[in-house]
């Protein structure tokens, strides 16, 4: 397998709190990798290390390496704009901008000046089609994104990433604000997107990890306990702690 993200002896500290401990994990290209583990074990922290969103917080320090597409993202010379164009992120709570549907999709195009205004229509259509919103919203492109249902908002947040042409989509519990039916729809969408994108999804829902992902990583208290094919993790886990978690003994 070819790894698009390599994490080497990676440590992250919030002040003095050691949140990630010597994590080593290779994320394969064009696959869905899920991260599971009890709340507070460091899943979101690891995900945010991949697009350096932890930079927004004060007092975060790291050592070790995170290599995305051959480049160490923590290099002082790393271009954050380029990194975040390559690595898109979907958040736990849908967070469309308080702008129109069209403006949400065009946001990245406008800030990066990546297309001429005459292409805007095509971009909106293509992006919304990719997340199955086009038929429902093509007549409502000018309504505020805040008027959409939560599921539509989350889809829009995914659609908003696509014009940037990212290689990697990071999803931090993208379904936790959604009902089971909407969750099913988003999972289906992830299957479609897999052909073109590498997806890393954090979830506290083990069934979801089993359903959608090719690889699964189990984290516990900042340590990567086990990482393997999802099939293997869920049938023959090597570590007792993984087994205990999956069988519901704690978590």
């Amino acid at each position: 397998m070819s790894a698009i993200i390599q994490t080497r002896n990676f440590n992250l500290f919030y002040g003095t709190f050691h949140a990630l401990k010597d994590v080593n994990i290779d994320i394969p290209k064009n696959m869905i990798t899920s991260m599971i583990g009890p709340s507070g074990c460091g899943k979101s922290t690891l995900l945010r290390a991949y697009n350096r969103m932890n930079d927004l917080l004060e007092d975060v320090s790291v050592n070790g390496e995170v290599i995305v597409d051959g480049k160490n993202v923590n290099d002082p010379g790393m271009d954050l704009v380029e990194l975040r164009k390559k690595v898109g992120m979907v958040f736990q709570r849908p967070n469309p901008f308080p702008l129109s549907v069209a403006e949400n999709v065009l946001f990245s195009v406008k800030i990066h000046r990546s297309a001429a205004p005459k292409e805007y229509g095509d971009i909106i259509e293509k992006s919304l089609k990719a997340v199955d919103l086009w038929d429902g919203l093509k007549d409502k492109l000018n309504t505020s994104a805040l008027n959409l249902s939560l599921e539509q908002q989350q889809r829009l947040c995914i659609a908003r990433l696509l014009p940037v042409k990212p290689d990697i989509l990071l999803m931090d519990e993208p379904c936790s604000a959604l009902d089971p039916i909407a969750t099913g729809h988003i999972e289906e969408l992830m299957h479609h997107l897999k052909a073109n994108y590498t997806i890393v999804i954090v979830t506290h829902n083990m069934q979801q990890a089993a359903r959608v992902s090719d690889y699964t990583a189990y984290l516990y208290l900042g340590n990567l306990i086990e990482y393997d094919l999802t099939k293997k993790i869920f049938t023959v886990p090597k570590d007792r702690r993984t087994e205990d978690y999956l069988s519901g003994k704690f978590g």
Partner: peptide, 25 residues
Amino acid sequence: KRYKEAALALGATRWQSIWRVILPA
């Protein structure tokens, strides 16, 4: 804060996130 996070995660600079998201909001 999540608007700002969203903008930055899309590769916006701090100034772009202020000008295009925070000020209008």
